[in-house]
């Protein structure tokens, strides 16, 4: 075998995945890009309109609002989710039976599908029939209209999402904690470092990669938040919880505006891409500094 052949061998390993990836993901993505330049619906011909769909999007206040909502809900979810997951991992990183049970408890909601999650939370959040409403009323207060007040729906979606998705990041942090060499703690103990100091100087820096991974995955996931908004509030009241993907879905499936929906999808894709790449470059820099391979 020549070294040239050997050089190409690696490609054979990645080829099966790459071929499918190109066919089923990249080709549809490019086709979407092409469609975004057309005025076209699901069944018909289509007229080339250049960037007209994008111009229309820029002037569409509903799309603008959906982007703002998406950013807001992502900002509400990601930092809180990360902190909660980290706190749970720190508290549950021990070999006791009770910790094992609690780990199971905090992971349990992650096995539910979004249809079920929203069904359950509807029966918690609705002011007239929900669990929270009953509690509030029992305390002699007027229940908060979580699903119908414009300034409460996004927090309601965030709450639902955090409950639903805290399990995976917690497991990631647990795994990260177990990777920290015991001798680092022993060294800290020898230095008579306080618990806080140990946490800030040893634990947290060691979890840097994990934290970046969690934030990166969660940001990408939450910018695509859809089911909660569609099923829990249908984007209401008055669009206050309409997310970008819900906008996309309504445009494509409700109005059959394939071209316009494709343009919205491209914008969303670019935004997520920009955010993900920024985060990836941050991790890249960290890696370059650390392992120098």
């Amino acid at each position: 075998m020549t070294s040239a052949e050997r050089r190409w061998q690696g490609l054979l390993f990645v080829a099966p995945f790459l071929l499918l990836y190109l066919l089923i993901l990249i080709y549809p993505l490019l086709r979407g890009l092409w469609l975004s330049l057309y005025q076209v619906d699901l069944f018909g011909g289509g007229t080339f309109v250049g960037l007209a769909n994008y111009a229309r999007l820029a002037a569409d206040p509903v799309f603008g609002q959906s982007l703002i909502n998406t950013f807001l809900v992502t900002l509400m979810i990601v930092p809180l989710l990360t902190v909660v997951a980290l706190a749970l991992a720190l508290a549950l990183n021990r070999a006791t039976r009770s910790a094992a049970i609690l780990r199971g408890v905090f992971f349990s909601s992650a096995v539910l599908s979004v249809t079920i999650v929203t069904l359950i939370w509807r029966f918690i959040l609705a002011p007239d029939a929900g669990l929270l409403g009953e509690l509030w009323t029992a305390l002699g207060r007027e229940p908060l209209p979580f699903l119908s007040a414009p300034n409460l729906v996004l927090p309601a979606l965030a709450m639902t999402t955090i409950w639903w998705s805290v399990g995976f990041p917690m497991l990631l942090f647990l795994a990260g904690l177990q990777q920290i060499p015991q001798d680092m703690y022993e060294a800290a103990a020898l230095d008579r470092a306080s618990k806080w100091t140990t946490f800030w100087r040893v634990t947290l820096p060691s979890l840097r990669r994990t934290t970046i991974l969690v934030v990166m995955l969660q940001t990408a996931a939450q910018l695509q938040i859809f089911g909660q908004s569609q099923l829990l509030t249908a984007g209401g009241p008055s669009g206050a919880s309409r997310t970008a993907v819900l906008f996309l879905f309504e445009t494509a499936f409700g109005r059959w505006e394939l071209g316009y929906a494709s343009a919205a999808a491209e914008i969303l894709f670019l935004i997520i891409l920009a955010v993900t790449l920024t985060q990836y470059m941050l991790t890249g820099r960290v890696r370059a500094g650390e392992d120098g391979r």
């Binding site: 509807r122 002011p127 007239d128 029939a129 209209p145 699903l147 119908s148």
Partner: peptide
């Protein structure tokens, strides 16, 4: 008239 109900809540009410 009520203003904070969804369909299931209205039916139940």
């Amino acid at each position: 008239g009520t203003s904070n109900m969804d369909t299931p809540a209205a039916i139940a009410a």
